[in-house]
Amino acid sequence: MSVEAHEVIPIPMPREESIPQAARRKLSSPWASGLVIFITLLWTIPTFGLLVTSLRPKDQAQSSGWWTAFTDPVFTLSNYAEVLTGGQTIPGGITPYFFNSFAIALPAAIFPLVVATMAAYALAWIPFRGATFVFFGIFALQVIPLQMSLLPLLQMFNLGWSIGPIPIFPDLNQAGSNQSIFYGTYIPLWIAHTMFALPLAIFLLHNFIRQLPRELFEAARVDGASHFLIFRKLVLPLTVPAIASFAIFQFLWVWNDLLVALTFAGGTPDVAPITAYLANIKGTYGAQLHLITAGAFIAIVVPLIVFFSLQRFFVRGLLAGSVKG
């Protein structure tokens, strides 16, 4: 937030090579490289241990540390086969949950982005009284622990909500049943995730959108373009890096969520995400390390793919928001 840093940030992305090559070479040292490699190894070992354990047969996995797999290499893919489709130990497979996680995470990553980008634009470039107050208010909402929102929200989805006689949200229960029309769908989950994501999303996107050059907007307004047109033709294309980064962030968050999913969608194979499956097998098959680790690895493989393939975007957008603070 220091003024200097703020003024100098190129838009929309800082240069990759800002310090001259000569300076870089001079500064680089084998010491530094060694240290970085050491920390990198340290950071990777836990996950690597998970992968190795998941590839070991049951007996080995339970009775010896995973590192002994290198002196006594016995590997198998059968743990994965069992977890994917169900087998002798675990009757139900992870597969339906895997797809649920996609069906939950895709819309739950996109909806908050759409809403947040629009709000961020309004707060940044449509002048109105109280805009600053609204912005800081939204920023401050980050402090609310989402656990405390679960019950009121659930009540709203299922029982409706009204202030006195004025209905604010309709009662969506099917006639004669205590199941809301949302029951067994992902809809409440998408909405809940959208709500919880908004403060951070608006905050980050606002910081990005505010940096766009003022002249751009002034020129467009002079030409008589409406806010809707400006938003579609100017803001959206220019904001892509930030949107993409936040989309990845939100996708990871939703994919990894357990609490919100369990509360709003329940734990049946029809709707529950992969984390619910993982939590359940961890609870029942505590001793079956070879299967739990295989399940855990399947669950993290998608976030890892998403992350590794899109990390360029990720870093950019994150930077845009955070560097500006």
Binding site: W43, L50, N256, L258, L278, T293, A299
Partner: peptide
């Protein structure tokens, strides 16, 4: 950066 992509359930197991 990778651990950021891992759920708490997964991190607990790891």
């Amino acid at each position: 950066f990778m651990p950021m992509a891992i759920s708490f359930v997964g991190a607990g197991i790891i």
